[in-house]
Design a protein around this nucleic acid. Structure first.
Length: 472
RNA sequence: CGGGGAGUAGCGCAGUUGGUAGCGCACCUGCUUUGGGAGCAGGAGGCCGCGGGUUCAAGUCCCGCCUCCCCGACCA
């Protein structure tokens, strides 16, 4: 029997493929208000795994979780000029409450610098109170003109870190530490997505920041996705919110700050970095179900053997699930699990049982092999490691293959139609080149040193390399 | 906001010169099936985006409005 397309093939229409996967893998639905999103149980389970990994790393970096209000006085936003300018167009503002017009409108947070900083100002009195390292998991609202599930929604979930330090150097170090030890590490080692880390250009940086650091990844259509950002805020917010403290010599000084965030957009990255024409391909570290045991039929002891196998897999520390829905056809169930990206599938029917084996299949490359029943747990364990590694290698290969060295803006624009281009900084001609790129729908994603390392905040683009691409 | 499309069952769509609302998938019931999206039989499901108009009669024609999608400018 010929295999019919389950999804619109990536090569035919990538955005359509993305929508198909999100719907058919039961990750999310559109909400009733434009731009809002319902994250379905399977999608939320993946997000919870991701959250746990990021949260653990944030705590390892010394930050503590807290929670600040959803509503922010409108006046707070007006205090930092660049910040208000950057966010005004996408604010949702509450003007009425309890049936009355509010004396001061409340902004629904699009980010929480202003409200958190107003409290950091109260908490920071002495240099002994610093650093203050706060993280919050929350929803935020930015009114979007062109929403896409996970990638750009009006309301989304994220974590936002906000810190205050005694010195600029310490804030700088901390912003980079988060970039490396929280974001890059999670993306590479958990999500199996290689990222390019670097500095944003002046025009791409966060509204109110002095420097923005970013981790960017390549999706399977060659476009870039910003995965997480870490900002150095200088003393911009400290000055307007009065985050000052007595330093060791008894002088009053303003704190140096950072802020950093990663959102449910990462779910979109997971789909677009690894997915294929059969659906999701989840890295085992994140998969809510790492191994599914599919009872082909339940007669002749096959059902019981499958149940037993699931218990053994769980005892070995794997997230395993039984599929004994024999009222559905075998093919349907296989297609379902492939759509959902489960890394390892074990097929067990009376025929296998009679031979003392099961068929073990890996999602990343579709290979199947018969394995003696007693060896299934070890094999599954081995494969979860192998699939994790293989997804990362495949993604690394695509990133390398999809990045070309360009010497002019025109070359870079050409290359960005299908992937990334590395463009020497001088070709940007102090922003003129960036204008040309932007006019063609291409942007500078990050600036790096020629050897791929991070530049300093001050280093001129002339000595750096611009990674340019079309972006989500 | 600029350009281009589309609103009919949960989803995807058809609906001719105006004449009682249709198909595929999904759903429900039963039987037969089950090693790559099963088959047969039966069944349920509709404010045809909203409001007006023309007409004996409007999903279809006319006017107005609303919404959504795609492409551009902004963005985690």
């Amino acid at each position: 029997m010929a295999r019919a397309d389950v999804l619109t093939p990536q090569g035919v229409d990538f955005p359509r493929w993305y929508q198909d996967v999100v719907a058919k893998a039961e990750l999310a639905d559109n909400g009733p208000v434009r731009g809002t999103m319902v994250i379905r149980p399977y999608g939320y389970a993946i997000w919870e795994r991701l959250q746990a990994e990021i949260d653990a790393r944030i705590k390892a970096a010394g930050a503590q979780n807290a929670y600040f209000p959803l509503f922010i006085p409108e006046s707070y936003f007006r205090r930092e000029a660049e910040h208000v300018e950057g966010f005004s167009p996408e604010l949702a503002v509450v003007t009425h409450g309890g049936g009355k017009k509010l004396e001061e409108p409340a902004v629904v947070r699009p980010t929480s610098e202003t409200i958190i900083d107003s409290f950091l100002a109260k908490w920071a009195q002495s240099y002994r109170d610093l650093p203050l390292l706060i993280n919050q998991w929350s929803n935020v609202v930015r009114w979007e003109l062109r929403p896409r599930l996970f990638l750009r929604t009006t309301e989304f979930l994220w974590q936002e870190g906000h810190t205050a330090h005694a010195t600029e150097a310490e804030a700088h170090e901390y912003a980079l530490r988060i970039l490396r030890e929280v974001y890059e590490d999670t993306m590479v080692n958990v999500m199996a997505i290689p990222v390019l880390v670097g500095r944003k250009t002046e025009r791409e940086r966060f509204a109110g920041a002095t420097t923005t650091w970013s981790a960017e990844a390549m999706m399977r259509d060659g476009k870039a996705l910003q995965m997480g950002t870490s900002h150095e805020l200088g003393q911009n917010f400290a000055k307007v919110f009065g985050i000052s403290f007595s330093d060791e010599s008894g002088q009053q000084a303003y704190a140096w700050q950072t802020s950093w965030g990663a959102s449910t957009r990462l779910m979109g990255a997971l789909v677009m970095a690894h997915g294929d024409d059969a659906g999701l391909r989840l890295p085992p570290h994140l998969a809510p179900v790492q191994v599914v045991v599919l009872a082909v039929r339940t007669e002749d002891g096959a059902g019981e053997a499958a149940e037993k196998l699931v218990l053994e897999l769980r005892a070995a520390g794997l997230r395993a699930q039984l599929d004994n829905r024999t009222q559905l056809s075998f093919g349907r169930r296989v297609v379902d699990w492939e759509l959902k990206g489960v890394p390892v599938r074990v097929e067990l029917g009376p025929r296998d049982l009679a031979g003392g084996t099961a068929v073990v299949c890996r999602r990343d490359d579709g290979t199947k092999s018969p394995v003696p029943l007693a060896g299934v747990v070890a094999k599954a364990k081995e494969l979860t490691g192998a699939v994790q590694e293989s997804l990362l290698q495949q993604a690394r290969h695509r990133l390398a293959q999809g990045t070309v060295q360009a010497s002019t803006v025109a070359d870079a624009i050409e290359a960005a139609q299908s992937g990334f281009a590395a463009l020497p900084g001088p070709a940007l001609r102090g922003g003129e080149g960036e204008d040309e790129l932007n006019a063609s729908g291409v942007s500078v994603r990050v600036l790096q040193r020629p050897d791929g390392s991070l530049p300093s905040p001050e280093e001129s683009p002339d000595g750096l390399v611009a990674i340019v691409a079309r972006a989500y």
